[in-house]
C-alpha cells in the first residue's frame, strides 16, 4: 500500500512509455503531414472524438470504481481479521479455565493464541502464494509445521487444528458448551474472511471491464491528434501526448489496484497487519509459560520507500 504523498512518475512510466512513445511518433507524423506537407484531408472534425472521450470516461470511471471496490473490500477484510484476532485471543485467555494440574506442554489457552498469531501469517502466504512453513515452524514448532505440509489449504487446516484444541479443552473440562459456541462463532468468522479473500484473489475483474476500456483508450489516443491538428498545428504532439498520458495512466492505475493480493506496492499491507496482530497478541498473552524458542522480540514495521507491504 502506498503511504507516501506523491506517486513518483517512475512507477507509471515503465508500463506506459512504449505506448506513449509510439503515440508521440504518430502525433509528430500527423502534425508534419498536416502543417508541412499541407495534406489537410488528414484532419478530423473534433465532433466524433468528443463523445468518444465522454464514453471512455464513463468506462474508465466504472472500472476504477470496480477495482477500488475490490481493493477496499480486501483492506476491510484484513481490518476485520485484526479485530477478530484480538477478540479470539481475549476469549482464549479469559474464557478457558486454568489447567487443573500442570502438564508438560504449553497451556492450551496459549497454544490457541499462538495458533491465532500464526493464522494471519499463513493466510497472507496463502494469498501471495508464498511458503508459510518457515513461519509456522518459528511460531508453532517444527512438528506442527511438518504436519501442515500435508495440506494444500494451510489456513483452513490451521483452523481445524484450533477447533481440535478447543475440543481438547472441552474434554479436559476447561470450557463449557456456551463458551465453546461463542468462540466457535469467531473461528467461523475467520473462515469467512479467508473465503472472501480467496474470492477476491481467484475471481478477476470481468474481462469485459478490463479489455474494452483498454481498446477504447487506444482508439481515442490514435484519433486525438487527427482532431487536434487543425487547431494546434505543430503543437499537436505536446497536447495529444499529455492528454493520452492522462487516459493511459488512469487505465493502468485502475488495473493495478484491482488485484490487492499480488505482492505489489498496491497490495493490502498484509505483512504489516499480520505483524500488528502478532505484536498485539503476544502483548496480551505474555511470555510466561512459553519455552524460549517461542518468545519473540519484534518491532513495528515502517514504510519502505513510502510503501507498506
Amino acid at each position: 500500500m502506498i503511504v507516501r504523498d506523491r506517486l513518483p512518475l517512475k512507477r507509471i512510466w515503465p508500463q506506459a512509455w512504449r505506448r506513449l512513445l509510439i503515440l508521440l511518433f504518430f502525433d509528430c507524423t500527423v502534425a508534419v503531414i498536416y502543417t508541412v506537407f499541407k495534406h489537410h484531408w488528414i484532419s478530423l472534425n473534433g465532433l466524433p472524438v468528443a463523445p468518444l472521450a465522454s464514453a471512455l470516461t464513463i468506462f474508465l470511471a466504472f472500472r476504477t470504481n470496480a477495482a477500488y471496490g475490490r481493493w477496499w473490500e480486501a483492506r476491510s477484510l484484513w481490518g476485520q481479521l485484526v479485530n477478530y484476532s484480538r477478540a479470539l485471543a481475549r476469549q482464549f485467555l479469559t474464557m478457558l479455565d486454568d489447567e487443573l494440574e500442570p502438564k508438560d506442554r504449553i497451556p492450551l489457552s496459549k497454544q490457541l493464541v499462538l495458533h491465532q498469531i500464526a493464522f494471519p501469517h499463513v493466510l497472507r502466504c496463502h494469498l501471495r502464494k508464498q511458503t508459510p512453513f518457515s513461519e509456522i515452524q518459528s511460531i508453532l514448532g517444527k512438528d506442527i509445521a511438518d504436519e501442515m505440509r500435508r495440506y494444500k489449504n494451510v489456513p483452513a487446516a490451521l483452523l481445524v487444528r484450533m477447533g481440535g484444541l478447543l475440543k481438547q479443552a472441552r474434554n479436559e473440562g476447561m470450557i463449557d458448551s456456551f463458551r465453546w459456541t461463542a468462540i466457535d462463532e469467531n473461528l467461523t468468522m475467520l473462515a469467512n474472511i479467508q473465503g472472501a479473500c480467496e474470492r477476491i484473489k481467484n475471481t478477476p475483474l470481468p474481462r469485459q471491464f478490463d479489455y474494452l476500456p483498454r481498446i477504447l483508450v487506444d482508439a481515442f489516443c490514435w484519433l486525438l491528434p487527427l482532431a487536434l491538428v487543425e487547431d494546434l498545428g505543430l503543437m499537436t504532439p505536446i497536447a495529444s501526448t499529455l492528454i493520452s498520458f492522462t487516459f493511459i495512466a488512469a487505465d493502468l492505475m485502475s488495473r493495478e489496484i484491482s488485484n490487492p493480493f499480488d505482492n505489489t506496492i498496491h497490495d493490502t499491507p498484509m505483512t504489516a497487519l499480520s505483524r500488528t496482530i502478532e505484536l498485539n497478541l503476544r502483548e496480551e498473552m505474555g511470555d510466561e509459560g512459553l519455552p524460549r524458542e517461542f518468545r519473540k522480540q519484534l518491532a513495528e514495521l515502517q514504510p519502505v520507500d513510502g510503501f507498506v507491504f
Binding site: 501469517h121 497472507r124 502466504c125 518457515s134 513461519e135 515452524q137 518459528s138 511460531i139 505483512t271 504489516a272 499480520s274 505483524r275 519473540k296 519484534l298 518491532a299 514495521l301 515502517q302 514504510p303 519502505v304 520507500d305 507491504f309
Partner: peptide
Amino acid sequence: NALLQSFFAEADNYP
C-alpha cells in the same frame, strides 16, 4: 537500518 528492518519483515519469524 529502519528500511532494512521493515523489508521482508516475515523473515523475522524464520528460524
